[in-house]
Simulated assay, not measured.
Amino acid sequence: MRKLLVFIPLVAFLGLGIFLFKGLFMDPRTLPSALIDKPFPEFSLPSLYNMDETLTQLDLQGEVALLNVWATWCPTCKEEHAQLNKIGLEEGVTIYGLNYKDDPELARQWLERYLDPYRKVIVDEEGYLGLDLGVYGAPETYIIDKKGIIRYRHVGEVNESVWLHLRELMQTIEKEDA
Rank of each mutant, 00 (worst) to 15 (best):
R2N: 12
K3V: 13
K3Q: 12
L5W: 14
V6F: 15
A12L: 15
G15K: 07
G15S: 10
L16M: 12
L16N: 02
L16W: 15
L20I: 14
F21P: 00
G23W: 05
M26H: 09
L31T: 04
P32C: 00
S33F: 08
A34E: 13
I36P: 01
K38N: 07
P39Q: 11
P41F: 13
F43L: 05
S44D: 04
S44Y: 02
L48I: 03
L48F: 06
N50A: 12
N50K: 12
N50F: 07
N50W: 02
M51C: 00
E53I: 09
L55Q: 03
T56V: 02
L58S: 12
L58V: 08
L58I: 04
D59L: 04
G62H: 09
G62L: 07
E63S: 15
E63N: 14
E63D: 14
E63H: 09
V64L: 09
V64R: 08
A65E: 01
L66R: 09
L67Y: 01
L67F: 06
N68H: 05
V69N: 04
W70Q: 02
A71W: 03
A71R: 07
W73E: 01
W73H: 13
W73R: 08
P75I: 14
K78V: 13
K78E: 12
E79W: 09
E79V: 15
E80N: 03
H81Y: 09
Q83T: 15
Q83W: 08
L84Y: 10
L84V: 10
K86R: 15
K86I: 03
I87E: 05
G88Y: 11
G88K: 03
E90W: 06
E90Q: 14
E91T: 05
G92K: 10
G92L: 12
G92P: 03
T94Y: 03
Y96V: 00
G97F: 06
G97W: 11
Y100Q: 05
D102C: 05
D102W: 03
E105T: 13
E105P: 01
L106A: 15
A107Q: 04
Q109Y: 09
W110A: 03
W110Q: 01
E112F: 08
E112N: 12
E112P: 00
Y114T: 02
Y114S: 02
P117H: 07
Y118P: 03
V121H: 04
V121D: 00
V121S: 12
D124G: 05
E125K: 10
E125L: 00
E125H: 03
E126D: 12
Y128C: 00
Y128E: 11
L129E: 01
L129C: 04
L131D: 06
L131Q: 12
L133M: 13
G134E: 02
G134R: 06
V135R: 09
G137K: 08
Y142G: 02
D145T: 10
D145A: 11
K147W: 11
K147R: 14
I150N: 04
R153G: 01
N159F: 12
N159E: 10
E160P: 00
S161W: 14
W163Q: 04
L164R: 14
L166C: 04
L166Y: 10
L166P: 05
R167K: 15
E168Y: 13
Q171K: 14
T172P: 00
I173E: 03
E176S: 09
D177H: 11
